[in-house]
Computed example of a mutant assay.
Amino acid sequence: MLVPQTRNIGLPMMNLMRFKGLPILQQLHIEEQLLRTSSENWCIVNDGTNDPTIVMGVSGKPAELLEIESVLHDQVPVIRRFTGGGTVIVDHQTIFVTFICNKETVPDLQPYPRPIMSWSSSLYCKVFRGIGDFHLRENDYVFGDHKFGGNAQSITKNKWIHHTSFLWDFDVRNMAYLKLPKRAPAYRSARGHLDFICRLKDYMPRSTFINKTVEAAGTQFSLRSLELEAVVTCSETEFRPSTRFLTNEELAAAAAAVSEQQLGLP
Rank of each mutant, 00 (worst) to 15 (best):
L200M: 13
R224L: 11
D195W: 05
P181S: 07
T208W: 03
S207Q: 06
L223I: 08
G192F: 14
C234Y: 00
K182G: 01
P181L: 09
V214P: 02
L180V: 08
I197A: 15
F209G: 05
V214T: 02
L223F: 01
L228D: 14
K182A: 09
V214H: 14
D171V: 09
A216Y: 14
M175R: 12
T237I: 11
A230R: 02
A184C: 04
S165V: 13
R199W: 07
W168I: 13
T208L: 15
F196E: 02
L167K: 00
T233M: 07
S222M: 06
T233Y: 10
F170M: 13
G218W: 07
L223A: 03
L178M: 08
D195M: 07
L223V: 13
T219I: 00
Y203V: 10
R188C: 08
G192D: 01
C234S: 15
L167Q: 06
S207L: 11
R206N: 04
I197N: 12
V231Y: 00
F166V: 07
T213C: 06
C234E: 07
A230V: 00
I197F: 15
R173F: 04
K179V: 00
I210R: 10
S225L: 00
P181Q: 02
A217S: 10
S207G: 04
D202M: 12
G192P: 06
S189K: 11
E215P: 00
V214C: 03
S189A: 15
T208H: 10
S189N: 11
S207F: 15
C234T: 08
P181R: 01
L180H: 11
L194H: 09
I210W: 09
T237M: 07
L180A: 14
K201Y: 04
S235P: 07
L194M: 12
G192Y: 06
L200C: 09
T208I: 10
K179C: 04
G218C: 05
F209S: 06
F221W: 13
A217H: 15
P205E: 05
